[in-house]
């Protein structure tokens, strides 16, 4: 289950963000995206999730070119916003995304525990802090079966203990043969991992 990008070019609003980008992520390995603001880390993730069509180049699974639908079917996504509804409780929020992904709502408790927020289960999500909301967003990853996780700055708003918890969760995904692409500005000690620097040539 190797994921790769070949000769990718990204344009946004007529501006070329990057061109001719090629990378490989093996099963069980992490790819860390590094680079300054505007270098295209988020754009690359949006492309890999099938939201943004590449201006040139393509993605592939095990060497077979992937359509946008192929991409969507295999990813779990964590973007900038946390996709939580203030009117729902923490447990309801998590249960909805887990069930939408085809999971069983009985997995909700374990998912919440994986990010250490099971004690907040019955609180309305509207009262959570930014860090707790982020943990709520991350916890659904553990319950899903997607082979590729795409994470955009997953550590933002998280305290040290939660970052450690997140790293453990990511490492577990790798150990189970999953793949990761993470845009990050902090070091994530994941093994094995490779780093792709964007915007370095300019």
């Amino acid at each position: 289950m190797a994921f790769s990008g070949r000769n990718l070019t990204c344009t946004r609003g007529g501006r070329t963000v990057f061109r001719d980008l090629t990378f490989d992520v093996a099963a069980g390995a992490a790819l860390l995206l590094r680079g300054p603001n505007g270098s295209g880390k988020s754009s690359l993730l949006r492309m890999a999730a099938g939201f943004l069509p590449p201006a040139a180049g393509h993605f592939a699974w095990d060497g077979n070119p992937a359509t946008a639908d192929d991409l969507r079917a295999r990813v779990a996504w964590v973007g900038h916003a946390d996709a939580t509804k203030a009117a729902f409780t923490v447990a309801e929020n998590a249960a909805f995304w887990i069930r939408l992904g085809g999971g069983d709502s009985s997995a909700t408790g374990r998912a919440l525990a994986s990010m250490g927020i099971d004690h907040l289960a019955d609180l309305p999500a509207g009262v959570l802090s930014a860090g707790q909301r982020r943990r709520l967003n991350l916890c659904r990853l553990a319950a899903g079966a997607a082979p590729l996780w795409l994470l955009d700055e997953p550590t933002s708003s998280l305290d040290d203990a939660s970052v450690t918890g997140l790293i453990a969760m990511l490492q577990q995904h790798l150990d189970r043969g999953g793949a990761l692409v993470v845009a990050t500005h902090v070091d994530l000690p994941l093994r094995p991992s490779a780093t792709l620097s964007l915007g370095a040539s300019r």
């Binding site: 999730a49 099938g50 969507r72 990813v75 996504w77 973007g79 996709a83 509804k85 939408l100 085809g102």
Partner: peptide
Amino acid sequence: FEDGSLELLALSP
């Protein structure tokens, strides 16, 4: 759209 749920809905099966 604003809270990011739409991205996850678009990625649903």
